[in-house]
Structures are given as structure tokens and as C-alpha cells.
């Protein structure tokens, strides 16, 4: 278990991490999401003991990382943003070095072989690290984190710079690892976190803006009902008519699709459905509906919204009606602090 208590980090006078609190339970896969420069790496570097916090405390399985660093670090496997690989060594020699460095007690041969197989680097074990591709280097980086079988894995942007196939492979591997380890992984790519993690923490400008399970977060977000309708007819007139319909909160028309065809973005009140009314109005006016889409706000939108710190014009995405609608949990708690 990892407990992060009231963590603050100043770089000079610049506040990089601002009073962060969270707990990661055993067996959890936690996604750490935020734009570049939000404080993700800083937080991870503090948790692994690479740098120290200005105030606050990090407990790794109850052991304070600053007071008893060696005991705490024994529980952590860390893959930093740039894998700490010695370029002039072979994969095998490097991982043997890490094995010695961590004073690993497991049987050297079988443990390393297991890790080679798990990370799919058996074929490159005799190659020099600087000649390896980015994808392989990332895998070797992951392998060094796994040596010694630490109960906690902290992975800083593990898929950055990889091609789509490699990304899928690494994700699958992380999911597999999540069964045996507590995993914290950071990313600025939301779909990645969505695909792998149980729980998500969104961090922006050093502050946690959301901390929830993916399901609850999606659910809380999808409540804002949005609709996109493509109509012909005079733009001003359509805007006026749509605005008159009860239940419609706002209408905008920013996108001209074809000649005199606009996409109207409609925000409706929660728990209402204005589609029938729109249909009736359009028929009455003799216009035509070319397209109608119920847009639900995706996590991507929520992320942009939360990290922008304000409710900006929300883009309506193509509908995605798979998850969150059939989950039993009703408890939605979007903790937006700013």
C-alpha cells in the first residue's frame, strides 16, 4: 500500500506539487493522468525516493521513504520517464547488474529468464543497449523495474514514443502485471489509462482535480447531455427556433458542413430528451434533419475541461454508448477542486 500525505514540492520558488493526498491499495492499477508539466513525474520521483518532498510524507507499505529509504525502495520497481539504461552494456549484463544492485535473493538464472520471457527480450539479451530500438529499450526498462519482484511498480509514461503495436503489447503486459503487483502508471494519453487502469487520478498544475474509478468518472461526466443536429434552413432562424424548445439550455452553430447546412450543438437540461421536439419543430418549418447525434462527454473532454480549469466549449464526439450505462453504482463523485 502506498500512502501519500499532504505532499508538496517546491523547485526554488515554483510550486510543482501542491498538497497532494491519495492512497493506493494493494492490487490496484492506478492511472496518473495530467498534461505535460502537471507534476506527475515529480510526484513519482518523490514516491520512489529520487528527490525529496518539501513537505508531506510518502509511506511505502508503512515505511517512510525519507526516514528509511533502503527498506522502502526494496518494495518498489521504478521505470522513470527515460529508462536508466547504461548504453554500453548488453541487455543481459545490465539486468544482471540491476539484480546485484537490488541485492535480489531469488534464483538468478530462473528469475532473469522469467523476466526475459515476460518482457519478450529473450532474443535481444546479448545485444548492446544503445543499438536497441526505442520499443526494446522501454521493455528492458520495464524488465529492470521487475527484477526482485517488488510488490509495487511505478511506471512513468511507459508507452511514450512507441508504435501502436508496441503500445498494445506494453499495455497487455501492464495489465498482466497488475494481477501480481500494485501498479501506478502515468500518462498524458487518456485512452491508455482507460484501457489499463481501475482508478484514475487527474492532476493539473500540481493539484489533484479528480480521483475516482473510471466507471464513476465516466458516469459523472456523461450526465451532461449534448446533442448535435445537422439541419438545413436559415441559420439565424434555426438558432431561434431551437432556442425556443423547452429543455434546451443553449444552442451554438459553429460548423458549416455543406452549403446552408449547419451542425447545431445543443445542450439540454439533465434528464430531458428534446429530440422529439426538435423533430416536430423541423417538420413544422419544412426543414430537413440530415444527421442527429447524442453526444456524451468522453473522459477526454472531461480531462480537457478539468485541466483547463474552466468549462470551455465542449466538443461533441461521435457517440460511444457502451460503458457506464449499465453499471450498478449510482454514486458519482467528481471532485473538482478548482
Amino acid at each position: 500500500m502506498i500512502e501519500v500525505k499532504d505532499l508538496t514540492k517546491y523547485y526554488g520558488s515554483k510550486l510543482a506539487v501542491n498538497h497532494i493526498n491519495f492512497t493506493v491499495n494493494d492490487g490496484e492499477i492506478l492511472g496518473f493522468l495530467g498534461p505535460n508539466g502537471a507534476g506527475k513525474s515529480t510526484t513519482m520521483n518523490i514516491m520512489t525516493g529520487y528527490i525529496s518532498s518539501s513537505t508531506g510524507q510518502v509511506l511505502i507499505n508503512g515505511v517512510d521513504i525519507l526516514e528509511n529509504p533502503i527498506a522502502a525502495k526494496r518494495n518498489i520497481g521504478y521505470l522513470p520517464e527515460i529508462p536508466p539504461l547504461y548504453q554500453d552494456m548488453t541487455v543481459k549484463a545490465y539486468l544482471n547488474f540491476v539484480y546485484d544492485l537490488k541485492k535480489c535473493k531469488l534464483s538468478r538464472k530462473s528469475h532473469l529468464e522469467e523476466i526475459f520471457k515476460l518482457c519478450k527480450i529473450t532474443d535481444v539479451q546479448d545485444r548492446i543497449l544503445k543499438r536497441l530500438s526505442k520499443g526494446y529499450r522501454q521493455r528492458v526498462g520495464l524488465a529492470q523495474a521487475l527484477i526482485g519482484n517488488p510488490p509495487i511498480l511505478i511506471l512513468d509514461e511507459p508507452t511514450v514514443g512507441l508504435d501502436p503495436k508496441q503500445i498494445i503489447e506494453i499495455r497487455t503486459l501492464i495489465k498482466k502485471l497488475g494481477k501480481r503487483h500494485t501498479v501506478i502508471l502515468s500518462s498524458h494519453i487518456l485512452s491508455e489509462i482507460q484501457a489499463v487502469c481501475d482508478r484514475i487520478i487527474i492532476i493539473n498544475k500540481g493539484t489533484i482535480v479528480a480521483d475516482d474509478t473510471i466507471e464513476d468518472l465516466s458516469k459523472a461526466i456523461s450526465k451532461s447531455n449534448r446533442l448535435t443536429v445537422r439541419l438545413d434552413g436559415n441559420r439565424e432562424e434555426v438558432l431561434f427556433e431551437l432556442g425556443k424548445i423547452s429543455g434546451v439550455v443553449s444552442v451554438t452553430a459553429d460548423m458549416q458542413r455543406e452549403d446552408s447546412l449547419y451542425d447545431y450543438e445543443i445542450e439540454q437540461k439533465a434528464n430531458t430528451d428534446v429530440r422529439k421536439d426538435i423533430n416536430a419543430m423541423v417538420q413544422r418549418k419544412g426543414w430537413n434533419i440530415y444527421q442527429m447525434q447524442v453526444g456524451e462527454m468522453t473522459l477526454e473532454d472531461a480531462f480537457l475541461k478539468m485541466t483547463a480549469g474552466e468549462v470551455s466549449p465542449v466538443i461533441v464526439h461521435n457517440t460511444k454508448t457502451d460503458d457506464s450505462s449499465n453499471t450498478s453504482s449510482d454514486e458519482t463523485s467528481e471532485k473538482t477542486t478548482d
Binding site: 525516493g49 529509504p69 533502503i70 527498506a71 521504478y78 522513470p80 527515460i82 544492485l101
Partner: peptide
Amino acid sequence: GKKTDQGLLTAPVS
């Protein structure tokens, strides 16, 4: 310079 110190400083060594 090459950031390999992150590996050393986060390993269980003094």
C-alpha cells in the same frame, strides 16, 4: 547527464 542516476538513486542502496 544521461539520467541513469534515477536507477541508482531509487535502488535500495545508500
